[in-house]
Amino acid sequence: MAQIAMAAGFILILVGFYGALTNRNILRMIVAFTVADTGVNIVMVAVGYMRGRTAPILDETVPVADALSRIIDPVPQALVLTAIVIGMGITALMLAFAYRFYEKKRTLDITKCTELKW
């Protein structure tokens, strides 16, 4: 199960990278980056998954005494929580810069951005 989730995450990362490398439209590149971002998150959650265990929340079904043998690793989940929020912030920043780029160049084609080309 963890392997399936991890493979799905890796595939999403590759799909995202492929989209970011081959597309010339900035908005498509941003979407591709968010896909890759989602893939990274899925891989990280999959690393914390352990067979036959449940979410790290203590309640009637997971009493405190059994917690050690019943819950999955909570640390990757806390890290992914951070990663999702930061990813959202990065997406917002990329969109704002794409807007400014369009305002200046009147196009979203990245090949028209030649100032730093050599």
Partner: peptide
């Protein structure tokens, strides 16, 4: 290979959260 047991950090959090922090959601 997925871990069979919680690692040291996760074990600490699983054992101590309820007594130290008092939150049921360990995350």
């Amino acid at each position: 290979e997925p871990d069979a047991e919680l690692n040291t950090t996760a074990r600490y959090y699983a054992e101590r959260t309820a007594a130290d922090i008092g939150a049921t959601n360990i995350v």
